Amino acid sequence: MWTLIAKALLAGAMIAAIAELGRRLPTFAALVASLPLVSVLGMVFLWNARPDAENMARHSEATFWYVLPSLPMFLLIPVLMRHAVPFWLALVLGCVLTVTLYALLRLAAPRFGLPI
């Protein structure tokens, strides 16, 4: 139980630090946010819980494929906001795009032999 709380606090602290950094240095905060810190920490925690090389390889490879559908959101949101779309609507539309692309990836993955 304490391990779960520690993991949640660490993740929350990372998000809070990025948000605070973003107030002063938005581009640098974006760089920090783009680092795969959550993925790396997740792999460390997963490895500690189950040190299985094949499981870790599958996890890492699937993470790669799941990152790809999230990337267009980071292009759509600024385009929408530069066209006077309010932030919350742009964010929701970006999330809808991401969920749609996740669903399409899940449908297409077996056809292309992707390991997800």
Rank of each mutant, 00 (worst) to 15 (best):
V79W: 13
F87T: 08
A109K: 11
P69R: 05
L104F: 14
R58C: 01
V96T: 14
R82W: 11
W47M: 05
P115K: 09
W88Q: 13
A29H: 03
V99S: 12
A6C: 04
V38Q: 01
T100V: 14
L9V: 12
T27A: 08
R111N: 09
M14R: 07
N48T: 01
T63M: 04
L114R: 09
H83W: 13
C95G: 15
G42P: 00
L21R: 04
A90M: 10
L41R: 01
A33Y: 03
F64H: 03
M73D: 12
L114P: 04
G42V: 01
L46A: 13
V79I: 13
M73R: 15
A49W: 04
L91E: 07
E54C: 02
L89C: 13
Y102K: 10
T98C: 11
A8S: 14
W2K: 12
G94N: 12
L35S: 02
S60R: 02
P26F: 05
C95R: 06
G94R: 12
L101Y: 09
S34E: 07
M73F: 08
L97G: 07
K7A: 14
L75Q: 08
F112H: 15
L46W: 00
L71C: 05
L71I: 15
S60H: 05
L68F: 03
L91A: 15
V44P: 00
A90V: 13
T27V: 04
L71P: 04
L80D: 07
A29V: 00
P86S: 09
W88H: 14
V96C: 13
L80V: 10
T98Q: 11
A33W: 01
I5S: 10
I18D: 01
A103M: 11
V67P: 06
M73T: 14
M81E: 15
M43P: 03
I15L: 14
M1R: 08
C95D: 08
F74Y: 11
I15M: 09
R111E: 13
F87W: 11
